[in-house]
Simulated scan of single mutants.
Amino acid sequence: MKFKRILTAVTAAALCISLAGCGGAASSSSSEAATAESAPESTVAEATASPETAAEGLRVAGLKGPTTMGLVNLMNSEEGADYNFTMYGAADEIVPLLVKGELDAAAIPANLAATLYQKTNGQVEVACVNTLGVLYIVENGDTVQSVADLKGQTIVTTGKGTTPEYVLRYVLSQNGVDPDNDVTIEYCSEATEALSQVQAGQATIAMLPQPFVTSALSQVEGLRVALDMNEEWEKVAGSQLVTGVLVVRKDAVEADPEAFTAFLDGYAASVEAANTDLEGTAALCETYGIVAKAALAQKALPECNIVFETGEQMKTDLVNYFQVLYDADPSSVGGALPADDFYYGV
């Protein structure tokens, strides 16, 4: 199949996981959800006239981590030969290619999709939600049973000024916990730094993303998952927390609507396999460099909330999610909420 692996240094926030030596922390940056802010506006704004869709078929990009784990079964299928899949380490590598029409579709953080919609004057749309929440509160101890129990605590995490911060602050405030006065939030540059503080006893509570959480649980004795932020978000927002989506250029869809529908059908089947054939999917995640080790991927898959969500449910979850981000920082979604034409098939 036409699959090209691009092994670049991961600089910002993709969930590129590799296992370090015995007793060491897994190598990771924060959350894929934070990669939107790693793509500067000047890069996003480099829109040019789009060339015709490549004859080699739909050109699809993915990030290492949960947002692409649901694609691997399609990549490896007979139908996958009809598409050109390319893997990247960070979203800022994908953005200019997608904007200039050198890519047709990409699995990226949801708020980056909203930003791209604004910066391309509506030339892109979101086709599906592919990943729900991947953030978890972990504790080396047993004091946190609810969000209210975080009051008076110190939480180490990543993603200051990006989606993880907005999610944490929203969940705290909606549970009556003032994020500025009732808790101390300490931000680290990446998840390994946050985990190292827990390992060293400098902190007992951290908010970390999957699949890093799965790796961390095997490395720190006594570490446990205290809160699933996806569940906590749903309790207070009335919708599901979104991490990743598949965004597509509208001209690519218009060039061959039936071909894109066939791609989505294959994607849906791939996601189903990712949630039922854990061993096979995990092996493919290692093969395609999405997660470093199959054993880690197999343990993490059930916790990565991989979905194929379209239509009204997709729109409802994204509209609510974008509203929270917009209220916290309009620039996190490109300065304005996407219009209805952003939502494919709705």
Rank of each mutant, 00 (worst) to 15 (best):
Q202G: 12
A200N: 11
I155C: 06
D182S: 09
R169V: 07
V183G: 07
L168F: 09
A216E: 08
V177Y: 01
A206H: 05
T204I: 08
L227N: 12
E193F: 13
G222L: 00
E221W: 01
T163Q: 02
I205A: 05
I185Q: 11
M229V: 10
V213F: 05
I185L: 13
A191P: 15
G161Y: 01
P209Y: 09
A203H: 01
A191N: 12
Q210E: 15
T158W: 02
L227R: 13
L227D: 14
A200Y: 08
V198L: 05
L195I: 10
V225M: 08
G161W: 05
D182P: 03
Q174V: 03
T162M: 01
S215V: 15
M229C: 14
L217C: 02
S215F: 14
D180G: 05
Q199V: 06
Q199D: 09
V156S: 01
R224T: 12
P179V: 06
T204R: 04
A203R: 02
Q202I: 02
A226H: 08
G222S: 00
P211M: 08
Q197I: 01
T157Y: 04
V177D: 10
L195R: 04
Q199S: 10
L195A: 04
V171E: 09
M207Y: 00
V171M: 13
C188T: 03
A216N: 08
T162N: 14
V225A: 07
R224Q: 12
A206R: 03
P164R: 00
V213R: 03
C188I: 07
Y187E: 08
I185T: 13
S173D: 15
A216T: 06
Y170S: 08
L217Y: 11
V213G: 07
G176D: 09
T154S: 05
T184A: 04
T192I: 02
V183L: 04
E231P: 10
S196Q: 11
L208T: 05
K160H: 10
R169Y: 05
P211H: 04
V183N: 06
A194T: 07
L223I: 10
A203N: 04
G176Y: 09
N175V: 13
P209K: 05
Q210H: 03
A206Y: 00
V220K: 04
A206I: 05
L168C: 02
G222R: 02
A200P: 07
V167Q: 04
E232S: 15
E232H: 15
Q197G: 00
G176W: 06
S189I: 11
I205M: 09
